[in-house]
Amino acid sequence: MAKSSIKIRAKLKGGVTTVKCLMNHPMETGLRKDKKTGNPIPAHFIQDVVAKHNDAEVMNAQWSGSVSKNPYLAFKFNGGASGDSVSISWTDNKGASESATAKIK
């Protein structure tokens, strides 16, 4: 399997799981221009993010191109146990998608 471009850290503390993740994506707004050619750079950004704890969806997010390049997302949910899985998947405006899974520490 190809290495996923999503990096996930999930830690349990006091009954709350903190998930931090970093995604690899250009997040082009569609408003920037190519410095050399002057042509507009087409919009290319992550639109949907889904976060799951085991099979349960704990959060989903919808984004615009105003989220920074190589997006960072952190969130918390109640519960979770050491060894449980946390998965993150995204879909961008061109229909590309990626997902990754990590174990709670």
């Binding site: 290495k3 471009s5 990096k7 850290r9 931090k20 993740c21 970093l22 690899n24 190589n70 960072y72 952190a74």
Partner: peptide, 15 residues
């Protein structure tokens, strides 16, 4: 630095 943007590149370098 909470989740530094260079972290994936460290892994690429390790590969």
């Amino acid at each position: 630095e909470e989740f530094p943007p260079y972290e994936p590149m460290i892994e690429d370098g390790e590969t």
